[in-house]
Design a protein around this nucleic acid. Structure first.
Lengths: 211, 211
DNA sequence: TGCTTTAGATAGTATCAGTATCTACTATTG
DNA sequence: CAATAGTAGATACTGATACTATCTAAAGCA
C-alpha cells in the first residue's frame, strides 16, 4: 500500500504520517526503491492506535512513542515493563529521583483496603497526586468514597486481568493488552460513569414528576 | 492578602496568577488603591482548583474558564448546566451542529443496559468516541466488558449522587459538586483501577511462587 | 512526454501556557 | 526621608508541541 492509500484508509494526512515516521512512532514501510515504500496492515493499525492515544486518551506524541517502545521491546520483566508504561500515562508524577518517598494519602487508602502498598508503583504516586489535588479545593474526599471507588475499580480490574492473554504463553500480547488496555479502556469507564450520573438524575427527576 | 502572599500560599508564581487574572479564571481582588489589591481565601481555593484541573485532570485553561463560568452563573436548569460542563471535559467531541446525529455503538450499550439513551448528552458522544477509537486497533471491546464496566460505573455514580447536596435546597452547591466531582474524582478512580491491576497481578505471581 | 506521486530534508506556522519587562506608582524600612 | 521593595496593568517575548508547507530529485503511469 502506498502512503496516499494509507492516508486515505486512516484519515490521517500524508504530512502527519511523515511526521510520525520522523518521530519514530510509525515504523518505516519496506522500501521499494528510492521514491516508494510499501505499507501494510500493521501501519493502518498503528496509525489508528496513535490517533486513539492522542485524541481520546490525550497523550503527547513523546509518551505515545515511549509506549510503543515498551510494546515492541518489552524487557524480561513484564511487571516492570507494565509499571513503566503506566508511568507514561497521565497524571504525570515526574519525580524521577527520591528513593525513600512516601505517599501518605495513598498509603492510608491502600492499607485500609488490604492491597499491596508500594511507593515504586506509578499508580501509587498518581493516586497520591489525585487525592492531594482535591485537598483545599472544597470538594470532599471521604474514606467512604474512596472505599466505594476502590471496590468498583477492583471489579473492573478483575475483569481486565481475567481477559488478559497468558503472560507465559504470549508475553508480547500480554504486554500489549495490559499497556493499551490500561490507557484505552479508561475513557470508556469514565464516559459510562458520566452517563450513569445522567441516567440516575433523569430517573429521580421523572420520579419527582410522578409523585 | 497581597499577591505575593497568595503566590507563596499556593505555590503559583505571581506571573501565573496575573495570567489567570487576565484570562478571567481568577476573579480580581478588591482594590485597595491603584497599586494594591486584597485577595481572600476564595482566591486560594480557586487557585488550588485551577491547578487541580490543569495539572491532574489535564484541562486547557479555556475549558477551566468555561467550567468556572457555569459554576458561578448556573442557569435555572441544573441538568442542562451539568451537561454543558461535562461537554468541557475530555475526550472532546467538538460536533456542535448536527441535530439528528446517532451514536450507534453507544446506543447499543445504553439500550442493553436499560439506561436512557439520549444523543444530546455529552457523555453519549464521549462513549461513542471512546469505543470507536478502540475499533481497528486490535484491542478487544466485548459486550461482556462493557457490561462489567457499566456495572462498576453505576456503583460509583450511585455513591456520587447519594452524596450530592440537595439540588433544590442548595442549587449552587449541587452544581459545583456535580461539575467538579465529575472531573476531579475521575483521576482517583483510574488510579485505583491501575493499583488494583498491580495488586491482582502481584498476588497471582506470589501464588505461583508458592505452588 | 508530461503529469502525479513519493522519500527525505528543512523550514515555517498556530496554539498554548506561561514569563519577562516596563511604567508609574505605593508601601515599608532603616 | 530616602532608598528599597512590591504592585497593577499593559505589552512583548519565549519554549514546547504538533503539525504543515515547500523543496529536491527521482520514479511511476497514462
Amino acid at each position: 500500500m502506498r502512503i496516499s492509500e494509507l492516508s486515505r484508509e486512516t484519515g490521517v494526512s500524508i504530512a502527519s504520517i511523515k511526521y510520525y515516521l520522523r518521530e519514530g512512532l510509525l515504523p518505516a514501510g519496506t522500501a521499494l526503491g528510492a521514491r516508494q515504500s510499501d505499507y501494510g496492515n500493521e501501519h493502518v493499525t498503528r496509525l489508528r492506535l496513535i490517533r486513539a492515544l492522542v485524541d481520546v486518551v490525550g497523550l503527547p506524541i513523546a509518551k505515545v512513542k515511549r509506549i510503543f517502545e515498551l510494546i515492541d521491546e518489552p524487557g524480561d520483566d513484564i511487571f516492570a515493563t507494565l509499571g513503566q508504561a503506566v508511568d507514561s500515562l497521565p497524571p504525570y508524577t515526574t519525580d524521577g529521583e527520591a528513593d525513600a518517598v512516601d505517599y501518605p494519602r495513598a498509603r492510608a487508602v491502600i492499607e485500609r483496603l488490604g492491597w499491596t502498598y508500594d511507593p515504586r508503583y506509578a499508580g501509587t504516586a498518581q493516586l497520591e497526586r489525585s487525592i492531594a489535588a482535591i485537598d483545599g479545593t472544597g470538594i470532599p474526599m471521604s474514606d467512604a468514597r474512596l472505599d466505594a471507588y476502590a471496590s468498583a475499580a477492583r471489579q473492573v480490574a478483575e475483569f481486565d486481568i481475567s481477559r488478559m492473554p497468558q503472560a507465559d504463553a504470549a508475553p508480547a500480547a500480554a504486554i500489549e493488552y495490559a499497556v493499551l488496555g490500561t490507557a484505552l479502556y479508561e475513557p470508556v469507564l469514565v464516559a459510562l460513569r458520566r452517563l450513569a450520573h445522567q441516567d440516575i438524575t433523569a430517573r429521580s427527576l421523572a420520579g419527582d414528576d410522578e409523585s
